[in-house]
Design a protein around this nucleic acid. Structure first.
Length: 231
DNA sequence: ACATTAACGGAGA
DNA sequence: TCTCCGTTAATGT
């Protein structure tokens, strides 16, 4: 019974997002009273481009992909979401709509926090507000460098970036099972899946990585970083 | 330097 | 069986 209470009280979960540390107990309680959980299977849409930004989302468990729905049904994956990250769009303080779609890559438990409450906290707590701006700014910066990478790097550089991103930011390990398939890896690096396959093989031939199906292991990280930097 | 297309085999529903 | 995925090679831009 004790355990059940702990699981339902989101104060136990609050440490997951850095910025929740700025909240008072009372403010945390406010969030506790305005949050809702839902479970998703791989491939299921958590929210869709165009839908209202009525909640901020945190993954309790699992991973999801954040992607833009471009022209001709072509997607651009902009990031992978995992627990501890705030997932909300720039539409939050704009047209109140999502501009990207979020779908589950694994089994996902997601926590939906009422957007009105999140906005209320901005008024109540200036440290929280600053942390929120900081979070949004970091994401904005990432997009700048992603834009440079996608437009000015060649394919090996882009794929090296993707592998380093997954290793450093997502899995925090140099060996991992990618939850992205080849198609999605292409959507993340703006290349055809056939090119992804060919360049993965090139990397393998050059001793940078080993890859069989979903398992990827980085063998020579400095060299991979050089490929990333040299485009 | 890349995308596209076609074709094939394997895995899984 | 049918569909999805990974892979390869040939061809197109």
């Amino acid at each position: 019974m004790e355990k059940l209470i702990a699981e339902n009280d989101c104060r136990a979960c609050m440490h997951r997002w850095e910025n929740f540390k700025t909240l008072t107990d009372e403010q945390k309680q406010l969030i506790s009273e305005h949050r809702y959980e839902a479970n998703f299977k791989p491939g299921e849409i958590i929210f869709k481009k165009g839908s209202p930004t009525s909640s901020v989302i945190f993954l309790v468990s699992g991973m999801a992909k954040v992607f833009l729905e471009g022209l001709d049904g072509k997607n651009i994956i902009i990031s992978i979401a995992k627990p501890g990250m705030m997932i909300s769009g720039p539409g939050t303080y704009g047209d109140l709509r999502h501009h990207f779609t979020l779908t589950a890559l694994t089994n996902v438990k997601a926590c939906f926090i009422d957007m009105l409450v999140m906005k209320q906290l901005v008024h109540l707590n200036s440290s929280y507000a600053e942390g929120l701006i900081s979070d949004i700014s970091k994401k904005s910066l990432l997009m700048y460098y992603k834009l440079i990478g996608l437009t000015q790097k060649k394919m090996p550089g882009r794929l090296a970036d993707a592998i380093l991103y997954l290793a450093n930011q997502i899995y925090e390990s140099d060996e991992f099972d990618i939850i992205l398939n080849r198609q999605e890896l292409g959507e993340f690096t703006n290349m055809a899946k056939e090119s992804v396959i060919r360049i993965l093989k090139d990397f393998e031939d050059d001793g940078l990585i080993t890859s069989n199906c979903s398992r990827i292991k980085i063998l020579d990280k400095p060299k991979l970083q050089r490929v990333s930097e040299n485009g």
